[in-house]
Design a protein around this nucleic acid. Structure first.
Lengths: 354, 354
DNA sequence: GGATCCCGGAGAAACGGTTCTCCTTCACCT
DNA sequence: AGGTGAAGGAGAACCGTTTCTCCGGGATCC
């Protein structure tokens, strides 16, 4: 009984009669033998490990699971990786470099990389596939996936307009991540288009207390909006609390929408309309794209992903890395509908009015 | 220039003049050399990886980050591991076995292991240190950490009694995890002691919709409680919604407390008193205990942990594994205080009354 | 001046798998 | 009967570190 035979038997390789194979397996089982993952990795060059890098949000050292979006996304990513035989290592970008370099990673998912992230660049240079959640600024990545934030914001603004909003405000962040930037830009562009003066307040999104203050500021303005979209998860409760303080009824005096993955907004008083970024879908897609790249599957054609999630925009070939935009979902609840509105049928949109 | 010299120079070992050391480092840097993690792991037997196993909750395949507790705990654990040079691999207990055995783990954190978990047993047998969050039933573990759930529940019941509750109800789960079991038992024991008939409803905790239904059931009972403690995070909103449906004012007609790590309860109407299990503290402690075990540090004396978090109960030596109980924190808000109560001073407790 | 010691560094053996190559045996065919 | 081919299995190189041992040479010491 040679080492080769055992290895082949356990891995289903080589040309062995089934009898030998099963005998080896039986003995291995009885002995409680477990092959050394390190040795296997050393020889094969595959560790079965995928990094999940969450970049630091603002000043905070480590905001993984700070927002429900990340938590959900990470969960889906873990599941997706697992179902393809990979495990996920959570590695904040702020980690000490020695931790990073001490782990054999087959590839990395990076959430919302800042422009010119040195970490991503180094990984990419050293040949490790990198797929980013969030359209990367200047980093070279193997592929990326993002929501269609512009379409989402425009959809919400239209939705609020249809519900009768005359002046829509925005509660947004001070950070420069892709999400905040794209969303805010879409808002500003919309304002320019329809001729509304922008009404928005910004705050550091990583600071939960600041959100409440900013919500208050927004409703305290002389040009108080009659509808508000909050970009971050806690904004719904923040705005609701602020509205209560100012005696504003929702939705009668103030229409409310916020971006959130939490279902608490289904049971608030009133229930609040939310935009879901579908983090599960994003997480699953990102990981599958990454593993395709690791295993050399050509997903550049977008066949696998494209069938399930039609992309509005996908680049291919050399040059810019292939990106996939995925749709969001607006969950309409009472906070963005005037009482008169029937819930089943949306009123015809006045053509001339915005 | 030999291989040995390079290895020693890079790792700060051996006896080399600083000049050689820095020269090697400089060249390595210029070449973009990164040592192979796999080879190092193979040679040293240390991977720098620790597993974070979350057992499946009820029927759900994978409930990591389902509850804020887990999310927070995982976050703290990741941070703690990182700051000691380890990375965390998220590995649901339901993972395919081949994924498990394909990863070199130095140790594992397991959240709330069920009795006789085969996975934990195998790990423990094969010499991998295992530290559990949640007192383990019958699994052999290196150490464990848990909240003092009994004290927490008793504290809440006392708190509600002091606020004037005459009949306290419980919203609890159907699963058999330690948390649910200990908490429910504490409630039942308390009822027996004070002579109150238990008033509780159970539901599968992993099903968010079921919580609302159970909350409704509890308040629809003929022996409707005038105070309720909900064991799970969403119970606060569930109970609040149910109370609204029945026209019950909180806290006037119904006192409310729930166990939650979410700060949304600070801004609900009214704000709801919550019990925090301090998941960050738990996560940090668990990981540090595990790494101590991995590195052979004797934490059995509890010096490191004990200084920061005095344990009420800790076993040592052989026999049962050393466990640490950690205190919880009750965040008192309007929902558990009668309007008459002044918020700054708690009223003297009537001696005869419970 | 020779034995001793320390300094700086080189050699080589693991670590535990995977995999390419090769060898032996036996059946089969002509 | 000899050549051929396939089946089954054995050998050995290799993956890239760490670490133990050893070695040459210059300084030190008596």
């Amino acid at each position: 009984m040679s080492i080769t035979t055992v290895s082949d038997a356990l891995n289903g390789k080589g040309r062995l009669p089934d009898e030998t194979r099963s005998r080896v397996r039986e003995v291995a089982e009885r002995l409680g033998y477990r092959p050394s993952a390190a040795a296997r990795t050393l020889r094969t060059g595959r560790s079965g490990l995928i990094g999940l890098t969450v970049t630091t949000y603002g000043e905070e050292p480590f905001t993984f699971t700070e927002f429900a979006y990340f938590a959900e996304m990470a969960r889906a990513a873990t599941s997706a990786a697992l179902s393809r035989g990979y495990a996920l290592v959570v590695l904040p970008a702020s980690s000490r470099h020695d931790v990073w370099s001490n782990i054999a990673l087959d590839g990395t998912v990076v959430i919302d990389p800042p422009d010119q992230d040195p970490l991503v660049s180094e990984l990419y240079r050293s040949g490790v596939p990198v797929v980013s959640d969030g359209k990367p600024g200047n980093c070279p990545v193997t592929a990326w996936v993002d929501n269609d934030h512009e379409a989402a914001v425009l959809g919400i603004l239209d939705h609020l307009s249809e519900a009768g909003a005359r002046r829509i405000g925005l509660l947004t962040g001070t950070s420069t991540d892709t999400y905040t930037r794209l969303s805010t830009d879409a808002y500003l562009g919309w304002c320019r288009k329809v001729g509304q003066e922008p009404v928005y307040e910004t705050y550091p999104a990583h600071d939960p207390a600041a959100g409440a203050v900013a919500a208050d500021r927004l409703l305290a303005r002389p040009d108080r909006p009659d509808a508000v979209y909050g970009l971050f998860d806690p904004n719904g409760t923040d705005l609701l609390a602020a509205a209560r303080r100012y005696g504003l009824r929702v939705p009668d005096d103030l229409l409310l929408v916020c971006c959130s993955e939490s279902d608490v907004y289904a049971t608030t008083e009133p229930p609040i309309t939310t935009l879901s970024l579908k983090p599960r879908r994003i997480g699953t897609t990102v990981v599958n794209l990454l593993i395709d790249a690791i295993e050399g599957v050509d997903s550049g054609t977008g066949v696998d992903v494209g069938r399930l999630f039609p992309a509005r925009y996908r680049t291919a070939g050399t040059g810019p890395p292939p990106g996939t935009l995925m749709p969001t979902e607006l969950i309409v609840r009472a906070s963005s509908q005037r009482r008169s509105t029937r819930t089943t049928v949306s009123p015809p949109r006045p053509p001339g009015e915005v």
